[in-house]
Amino acid sequence: MNANLSCPSIATSNGGPSLSRIVAGMWRMNEWNLTPQQRLSFIEQCLDMGVTSFDHADIYGGYGVEAVFGEALALQPSLRARLQLVSKCGIKLINGARPDHTIQHYDTSASHIVASAENSLRQLGTDHLDLLLIHRPDPLMNFDEIADAFGRLRREGKVRHFGVSNFSRHQFESLNRRIALATNQVEFSPLCVAPMFDETFDGLQDVGVSPMIWSPLAGGRLFSKDDAAGVRVSAVIQKIADDVGRPFGSVVFAWIMQLPSRPIPLTGSGRIQAVAEAVEATQFTLSRSQWFEILRAARGHEVA
């Protein structure tokens, strides 16, 4: 790993939080089979590279990831001042940890938002979240009620900034008119390019808000030999990686971050080398022709 790697930070919006340009995604932390000390070491290594933002959700790991992250952080509480904690709420899973849930559903009521945020604080062992997102659009969501809940959490000092995840442009703008949103976290990769063409990124760029990106490596499809689209796109990415002398993953992250909406990608790996490759993507820029080579492979046709 390059010891000189240093990840810059970026303001998600005017007045929004400053996050690291690469965010460490904690979705699968329970699957990494790390001891508390190993989890702490992972956090420290991320911080040493400038990856200071950590993405959570109440439901991750069957409602368990926030607690194991908090357990690690409790071994070195002073680290809290160096990092940003992001979490999400609004999905209720059928899970042994929540025996009262009888059907998987969404809940964006004010009572659930507040209760979920307060539980995340307890699990993470912190007095505030830097950013709280509504995890999915809810057909029963009331924009005014969500804004009121966000306002209450801010007044009580429990959450500093707010955003959404997987929202359409119109849904984002409807809530953003009521309370300033810092981001919309959406799925995007060379195998999932819809946000470039459904106004999601255009709308965020227009209001000066950076999207956060989940599954930037297409959930592993870019590494699968059984996925025709993944094989086609990966061959182009590998060729460019060889040409520029950078790792495959770095090229993917660089391709994403080159968009003018200033996307902030999440990693999803417990391997620190994978995080380092994402950080390396902040150190170079693809040529315009290289960028469009990947887009052409992604869409399977020329741009015109």
Rank of each mutant, 00 (worst) to 15 (best):
L266V: 03
A97S: 12
V51N: 06
Q171C: 02
S234C: 01
L204W: 03
S174Q: 13
S289N: 15
Q38E: 07
V186M: 01
W27V: 02
A254H: 04
Q238S: 11
V186N: 00
P265A: 06
L204F: 02
S41V: 04
N176K: 07
P263Y: 15
G125L: 01
Q273R: 08
H105Y: 11
E44H: 04
L47S: 11
I59Y: 06
A278D: 07
V114E: 08
R154D: 05
S9M: 04
S111F: 06
A72P: 08
G268Q: 10
P263T: 15
M1W: 05
A194D: 10
G208C: 03
L85N: 01
F253W: 00
L181K: 01
F188S: 06
I264P: 01
A254N: 14
G96L: 07
I134C: 06
T35D: 13
M29F: 03
F162R: 15
S269Y: 10
W27N: 08
R271M: 09
P36A: 08
Q84Y: 06
H128D: 10
R262S: 11
A297Q: 03
P190N: 00
L222G: 01
A228F: 09
R154W: 10
L175P: 05
S9Q: 12
L204I: 11
K158D: 14
R136L: 07
H128V: 10
P265I: 14
T12P: 05
S287M: 09
L129D: 10
I43S: 03
I294M: 04
G220N: 00
A149T: 09
R271C: 03
L79R: 03
N4H: 15
L129T: 15
V279S: 08
S41N: 12
H135R: 14
I256W: 03
A194S: 10
D130P: 15
P247D: 03
S13F: 08
C7W: 04
F197L: 13
S111P: 14
R221A: 02
L19W: 03
A117K: 00
I10A: 02
N184L: 11
L259S: 06
C46Q: 04
T285G: 12
I22G: 08
S165A: 14
I146T: 14
F54Q: 14
E156S: 09
W32C: 05
S53G: 06
T35W: 11
V164A: 00
V231K: 07
I179W: 07
L19Q: 01
H128L: 09
D58I: 08
F167Q: 04
G219N: 05
N95R: 13
R136W: 06
S168Y: 14
D206I: 13
L73K: 02
R80G: 08
I59F: 15
C89T: 05
H128N: 00
L140C: 10
L5R: 00
F150I: 04
R136E: 09
S109L: 14
G50K: 00
R98N: 02
V207K: 09
G203W: 00
